[in-house]
Design a protein around this nucleic acid. Structure first.
Lengths: 130, 130
DNA sequence: GACGTTTTGACAACCATTTTCGTTTTCGGC
DNA sequence: GCCGAAAACGAAAATGGTTGTCAAAACGTC
């Protein structure tokens, strides 16, 4: 495991939310690192392939990454303001998705489930801005 | 409603699956239309804003669109080979997502749920290629 | 038919991501 | 410690989907 990749992994784990490659690059550079953007992308790709980080796409198509605590299958509750994310599980949803697939004759059924909302602190600060 | 937008809507409704803007543009051009790519994007944007088509992002960030039969909230079971999609509902999932959000103090809770699989006909043709 | 408005499409601009390629670093063996 | 191969790096260029710009064309109205 290279040093650079470790740096990316750590930068990612310092956040509880989803971060984009560009974000992480900016963070690392501002800390004084001489890392290149290419390397950030490569590291994220590798971490993603290894299943060590979760990836999802924002509504404008940008890829965002998160270092999750568990390596078992799970989903996220994501704050649409600050990006903060909570890992959630839903055994019932897993079974439902599987059975829906089977009902329609689909095989190798997988699914993506993400829940979005405004977290308590973002809701509070939005309130105070009025 | 302009003629061009109508053409895009129709091209989209001729497919049961999700199509990208580039796909639709190619379809229309091959039918002899002189439509421009810009206009296809504008039409899709407008249809999407109006809630007349559903949008989602492929894993590589491309936006894909589908003309759905119902205008009520629903999800999709999508074939990862041919893109064919079936509209599905899951009241239990809706409630689950809402309650998960509330449990963690999130407000304005929404969610995205997509189920992927290989449809029967794609599975069959994959089989015959062996 | 003239005129203001809306729609259109060619083209350029954007921007996240990937590729290229020459350089640097790492590492096992000596 | 020294060498050479292999892996990692980073700057710059390329890619590709999507959006912005702007002048021309289509439309409706009087």
């Amino acid at each position: 495991m290279s040093t650079r990749r470790e740096a990316v992994r750590q930068a990612l784990s310092e956040s509880t939310g989803f971060r984009s490659a560009q974000d992480l690059y900016a963070d690392l550079r501002s800390e004084g690192s001489k890392i290149g953007l290419t390397t950030v992308y490569r590291a994220l790709q590798a971490l993603s392939d290894a299943g060590e980080v979760d990836v999802l796409r924002t509504s404008d198509g940008e890829a965002v990454y998160r270092a999750c605590l568990t390596d078992t299958h799970h989903h996220h509750l994501v704050c649409r303001e600050c990006g903060k994310a909570v890992e959630i599980e839903g055994p019932a949803v897993e079974k439902w998705a599987e059975s829906i697939g089977v009902q329609h004759g689909f095989s190798d059924v997988t699914h993506t489930v993400e829940v979005f909302g405004t977290c308590a602190s973002c809701a509070a600060s939005a309130q105070s801005e009025r």
